[in-house]
Design a protein around this nucleic acid. Structure first.
Lengths: 133, 133
DNA sequence: ATTATAATTTGCCAAATGGCGAATGTCAAG
DNA sequence: CTTGACATTCGCCATTTGGCAAATTATAAT
C-alpha cells in the first residue's frame, strides 16, 4: 500500500496545514475527519483512503484531485482510451442514434447498454440451442 | 461508504469484462487483484480502494482515472467523464456508452433506440396511471 | 449421463482504516 | 512553579478491505 517510504503526502499535508494556519482540530471541524486520524496521516502511520483525501483537500486549499495525485492514487498524465477491443463492428455511432440517445440522462443511456448486453447473451444461448437440434 | 445504492461501478466493470471478453481469473492474472475480490466488487459486496481500481482499469481498457471517476472517488473536470446526476438531456453521450455502442453494427444500434422508445412509452402510461390516484 | 475442467461464489482470516476517549505535551497567564 | 486551556498522540476497537482455499456452479467432452 505504501509506495515509496518517504511519506511525501504526510509532510505536504502538515506543511499546508501549518501554513494556513490550522490546528488538527480545526481541520477536523472543516473536513469531518477525526484529528487522531489526521495526525497519524501526517506522520505516515496511516494511509488515507481516497475518500478521506477528498474530504480534506478543500479545507486545505488543494484542488480536489491534487492530493490524490500526490498520494499516488492518480496518475497525473492524461491517458487516451485504449481501443484494443474496437476491432469489429462499425466503430462508430450512427448519427441518428447518437442524437436520440444524447437526449437521455446518462443513467438511462447506461441502462440501455445493460439491456443490450442481456439481449446479446440471450440470443447467444438461443442460437446454440437451435443449432444443436 | 457506498454512495448511491445502484452499484453502477460493479455493473460497468462486469459488463466491460464480459464484452472484452475476460474471465475473472484472466482479469486476476492481468491486474493482480484476486478473483474473489473482483467478483465481490462486480456484485457490489465490496467497495474497491483507489489502488485496486487503478490496477484493473488498464486490463479492462479504461483510462486510468476513468474508473475512479465512475466510482465517485473523483469528481473532477480534467476529463469530466461523468457528470451524470445532471438529470436530463445531458445533450451528449456518455463516453463509456459510446464506446460500447460503437462496437455494434448500425442496425443493432437502431434497434436499441427502438426498444428504448417502446420502454419510454410504456413507462409513460404507467406513470399516468399512478398520477391519477 | 458422467466425468473432467474451468469459472464463480463463499467462508474464513490477516491487515488496514478510521473513530472515540484518555493520556500526554505545550504554552501563556497568574 | 503551578494552573488551566488547547493541541497532539496513544490505546483500544469496530468496520472494511482484500487474499487464500474450499465449495459450488457452469461448461465441455466422452
Amino acid at each position: 500500500m505504501n509506495e515509496g517510504n518517504t511519506n511525501n503526502l504526510g509532510r505536504i499535508i502538515k506543511q499546508q496545514r501549518i501554513t494556513l494556519p490550522l490546528t488538527l482540530q480545526e481541520l477536523t471541524a472543516k473536513s469531518g475527519v477525526s484529528s487522531s486520524h489526521l495526525g497519524r496521516i501526517e506522520r505516515g502511520e496511516r494511509f488515507p483512503s481516497a475518500h478521506v483525501l477528498r474530504k480534506i483537500a478543500g479545507p486545505l486549499g488543494f484542488e480536489e484531485d491534487e492530493l490524490l495525485i500526490l498520494a499516488g492514487y492518480l496518475s497525473s498524465q492524461p491517458h487516451r482510451i485504449a481501443e484494443e477491443s474496437l476491432g469489429y463492428g462499425s466503430g462508430r455511432i450512427d448519427p441518428y442514434v447518437a442524437k436520440v440517445l444524447a437526449q437521455e440522462p446518462v443513467e438511462v443511456q447506461r441502462s440501455v447498454i445493460g439491456i443490450l448486453s442481456i439481449l446479446k447473451s440471450i440470443s447467444k444461448s438461443a442460437t446454440k440451442e437451435y443449432s444443436t437440434t
